[in-house]
Amino acid sequence: MSNQHNCENCPVHHRENLIRLGIAMDRVDYVVALAGNPNTGKSTVFNNLTGLRQHTGNWPGKTVARAEGGYSWGEKRYKVVDLPGTYSLLSTSTDEEVARDFILFGRPDVTVIVADATRLERNLNLALQILEITDRAVLCLNLMDEARRNNLEIDARNLSKELGIPVIPAAARQREGMPELIAAIEEVASGAYVCKPRRVKSQSAKLNHAISTLAGKLAADFPGLPNLNWVALRLLEGDQSIIEAVRSGDLGRLSSGVLSTSA
């Protein structure tokens, strides 16, 4: 398990699970997931990265089916998967399940969180939830042009320090910040940048106790799981797909499957 971190250029995605999730995995080095709130210009970022023309609807829940595309950079081939735009990952709508299952079971090499710079606080809600699940993410601070028009100043460096992941200011419509985003994706994917994601502790002592009890049990059965507390919380919330993953032992494959398939 320990050599997982030594291998700098190894992809971390879960190939088998990705294929099961319907992603064609031929000739792919890295898998990049695009997540974010509705109306953040996520699809524009997707189109800029992949050169495809996906429709950018001004609607929540627009990307009902997942869109995929790809690009090459620095001799590596990236597969980009556009996840449905959601406000949260903790409710039970189909969109949220699709997004969450992809990040959890597909284990993308990088998850790009597209956030609207003009309403950072709202978007951070989702970003923090995503950082509970994965420790490989980049925040794309989109719509910086609108933020400037609204006289908002955002301290991206400080934000990056707070979240523990790279933060790239961008204006996807003007293609501003796209080269930087691609570079940041590469750094996180290759392991050159090691994320230290911010994990939120709940304010309730009783809940924290329950989470740590359960997480302790999980750690014994599923060693090496990157998001123990989150899985424990989801079990407490009665999340069916997590319950099934625990019951069938699939959850174990999330932690150890990587080495066995890529070795």
Binding site: L90, N125, E162
Partner: peptide, 19 residues
């Protein structure tokens, strides 16, 4: 409680980084 904790954290970060 879970959601409230996350929002509280988001608000804290936003206060520090947005002007």
């Amino acid at each position: 409680t879970v959601i409230e904790s996350i929002y509280a954290e988001a608000a804290r970060i936003a206060r520090k980084t947005v002007q």
